[in-house]
Design a protein around this nucleic acid. Structure first.
Lengths: 142, 142
DNA sequence: CTTGACCTTGTAGCTACTCCAAGGTTTTAA
DNA sequence: TTAAAACCTTGGAGTAGCTACAAGGTCAAG
């Protein structure tokens, strides 16, 4: 199977597949006589593992860690649980930060319900007037 | 005021201040005889505006747009409202995606409540077995 | 035998910084 | 007076996770 076919089957861009190979997340495939990458079902499975982890928001480093676990089936899987728990709590933090952010944005938005000029706009006034000390801890939110 | 002083007053790193200047978000300050940047209260206010927008998760491009509005006080501020509304709906989408993500992660985590070996771990099995077609639309979540 | 669809490598771009090196300036202390 | 510490300068590289492009090689169909 050439890279285009694997890309089609997995829904992953061919450039991204090459990128994952460079990053060591995908075993290097054999090559055809003309140098084209030639993939097997095993590569397909490995790529799906990576893609699945990515949709769950894991970083490439985390995925690499999970792959290391996979390579050592006899080890205790507690570390897998820990990794996942950390990831979950990170997601929870993000959600919380975004909720706070949303509240602030809606409050800001409510400062200009009318159709005024930019000079009178409560939103821009608020953004300009607030001092840096009032900034909240939601920097991580974005 | 030199850059270090402005950094201290605003809580913004000096390198970031120089970066904002390069990116056109901060007016270029005058220089001392020895070439040091010399800031005024106006710069202080402008930087605070940028920082405040950043804590609200706005991109630098959005902030530039808002600054353009500021420069034209006579214009209708409706576009400001639109920009903010778009930003709010983006944040809402992110929150939703993260909620979905969290649910999936917790479900995944529940596949291994015991202390098994990696080979028996339900988490890795699930991650490996799920096909790409099952991937959800939460890619934007991270 | 040429057109088009594929593949290759290498490099640069994206966001919003952050860090570093190599050097100039200013202040402070011995 | 001089030396060290604490500033400042520019330019360039690195971060994550791709994405896009250029310049070229390969292959099947018409």
């Amino acid at each position: 199977m050439l890279i285009g076919e694997l890309a089609k089957q997995t829904g992953c861009d061919a450039e991204t597949i090459r990128y994952y190979e460079r990053e060591g997340l995908l075993r290097k495939p054999s090559r055809t006589a003309s140098g084209y990458r030639s993939y097997t079902g095993e590569h397909h499975g490995q790529l799906n593992f990576v893609l699945h982890c990515r949709t769950l928001g894991m970083t490439l480093a985390e995925i690499r860690t999970l792959q290391d676990f996979q390579a050592n089936p006899g080890f205790a899987c507690n570390d897998v649980n820990v990794l996942l728990d950390q990831h979950i709590s990170r997601v929870k933090q993000q959600i919380e930060a975004l909720h706070l952010l949303e509240k602030q944005l809606v409050a800001l938005r409510n400062r200009c319900r009318d159709n005024l000029t930019v000079g009178e706009c409560g939103i821009l006034k608020t953004l300009a007037s607030t001092s840096a000390g009032d900034r909240c801890a939601c920097d991580q939110a974005a």
